[in-house]
Design a protein around this nucleic acid. Structure first.
Lengths: 334, 334
DNA sequence: ACGGGGCGTGAATACGTATGTACGACCATG
DNA sequence: CATGGTCGTACATACGTATTCACGCCCCGT
């Protein structure tokens, strides 16, 4: 069974190929009678317009690339899913790409004109991808992380504010020896959350000792392996602020493995409020922001940029944060 | 900045466009000297071949569609991630599509010749998608679930065997009043796991009462809401087999909320052995299979089918299962 | 010296759709 | 009745790459 084209439909309907194209796109210049004839022929042949042919002709693929590091990190699905849905409702489709890809492969994938735009959910401050995309005039937006430079198009969270919230709550409970497990230093999320936390702690006269800070990828293992080190610090902490929920879950599990009671022996606070944070077995105290909205906002911003409706100087959309008390924080017992 | 095409490269290199195409694809009929000239020109212009032009000409997009229900269900990322990587190493890219999409949209996406193949990770036994794909001669494979009919191309798990394993372990521990939370009845995964469980229980003289069975989507909520109902059964169960780990986590959390101790008051067993099953806060006893391999196998099978190297009568690749004892099973105390 | 056989390259074309332009028919108006 | 306008459709072409075919050249053999 060979592919059915608009020419086949044209032949059956007794019109020309361009008329088929126009009729199916509901062009007002085609008479209702002809439209009906064409639609009938198209449906009789089970015709579906070729996306490739259309893309070549219109120079637009209505396809968006989304770059993530690792989908098995529970954070990403919660951003990719709403992103997918929002893009779909805007008439775009989603290509999933990962950062770990071989660099040459990745670049070719991005620069071969097969994407109308790109969502970068993994940007590190030293990534060279944005420059490549700029060079090709491929619209892109940052999601969650950005480069921190002016001119970015980004949908992000008030990370610094969120870090401050946690510091104040922890201080108010009476904690004085605190620790932190943050994201890698080349991510704005990691840096800003740490900064807000430090600044607000300083306001309360509390310092963050050198051996009370661990930085690493926003992964379960980072948290799991960080806790033993933090417990070995000169000043054993009574509270740990984690750069995100995934890391916090790692810390919670390490605490359980170490026989520590939470929150009696240790206060643990996360960031993101992933659905699992409210599981009974975790009851993780955390910082909430509207993750689905973060994704939807990125999708809409990207589409605005594609259609030329975005501010040419860049746009940074910042979502607010909120402290969510659950079961993993309390007064220090020591 | 206008798009750079092979014609531009040709002009700069002083050759024809076809020669550029051949040179860059390393065609042996092009002389080394010309190749060098072309490569130099291409790199000077930062040329990347247009994927769209190539697709139109070759009638192949090297793009694979992957259909999932809901990415926020922790199961899917663990199959999508290895699938993505395997496809990439085979030279294909991944389009992510969801089942919930508006049906018309979804069909158009699948049938517009923009995909070389499709992975169905969501098949229900009554899905009409396979017939549509057959009709268009679009190669596809089932992943994890299939229709159960002969002629399928599928990468699946020995679900019935896995269900049997659990029944035997539970029976051996002395449980006599057991319950089950299975997947929807129109999924082979749900049906086969239930079947194996029932058959092996019957071998031990144990029945599964009507009010000891709940069926629903393989989601957290299904498990969470199922437990209260099961506890209200005429014969309160001492053990619950869950259709997959995600459901089991729902049950575990419901048990915690109900003040039940696991495994003292209730034995809970899952299926899949997702990474989170080994978290200290869960320590879920479950049935393991090689999930990444399940995905990789599906990718390779699909590519074989695309290239015409697969058995024309269909192929069903079945992965074995293994019982993984952790902390959520034990002898009944009652 | 002439003819034949590679070898390397260019010209022509195909892929499927969208769109600018031209053209024919019909109607209304003077 | 002629002319101008409008409406609907066809013709031609563009998009970027891959491929088939034809052709010219050089080298070798006789």
């Amino acid at each position: 069974m060979t592919t059915i084209t608009s020419h086949d439909v044209a032949r059956l309907a007794g019109v020309s190929q361009p008329t088929v194209s126009r009729a199916l796109r509901d062009d007002p210049r085609v008479s209702p009678a002809t439209k009906e004839k064409v639609r009938k022929a198209a449906r009789a042949l089970n015709y579906v317009p070729s996306e490739v042919g259309r893309s070549l002709s219109t120079r637009s693929t209505r396809r968006i690339g989304v770059i993530v590091t690792d989908l098995t990190n529970p954070f990403y699905p919660h951003v990719v899913a709403p992103l997918h849905d929002e893009l779909e409702s805007l008439g775009y489709r989603m290509m999933l790409l990962t950062e770990r890809s071989d660099e040459a492969v990745a670049e070719e994938n991005l620069l071969d004109q097969s994407l109308d735009g790109v969502v970068l959910a993994t940007a590190t401050t030293d990534s060279r991808l944005p420059a490549q995309l700029d060079r090709r005039d491929i619209p892109y937006v940052f999601l969650n992380r950005d480069t921190g430079r002016a001119g970015d198009y980004a949908s992000v969270v008030d990370n610094e504010g969120g870090g401050r919230l946690v510091a104040r709550e922890i201080a108010a409970l009476g904690h004085r020896r605190v620790a932190g497990v943050f994201g890698a230093a080349n991510t704005t999320t990691g840096r800003e959350r740490e900064l807000g936390f430090r600044l607000a702690l300083a306001d309360e006269g509390i310092g963050l000792p050198e051996d009370g800070v661990v930085r690493g990828p926003f992964e379960y293992d980072t948290g799991y392996r960080a806790l033993p080190r933090l417990l070995d610090a000169a000043q054993r902490p009574t509270a740990v602020f984690c750069g995100n929920d995934v890391v916090a879950v790692g810390v919670l599990n390490a605490a359980r493995a170490a026989g520590l009671r939470v929150p009696e022996d240790l206060t643990v606070v996360g960031f993101d409020d992933l659905p699992m944070a409210s599981w009974e077995v975790l009851r993780l105290t955390t910082v909430r922001h509207d993750l689905p909205e973060l994704a939807r906002q990125a999708a809409r911003l990207l589409v605005r940029r594609i259609t030329g409706d975005a501010d040419s100087a860049g746009e940074r959309l910042v979502l607010p944060t909120e402290f969510v008390p659950r079961g993993t924080h309390g007064r220090p017992s020591a």
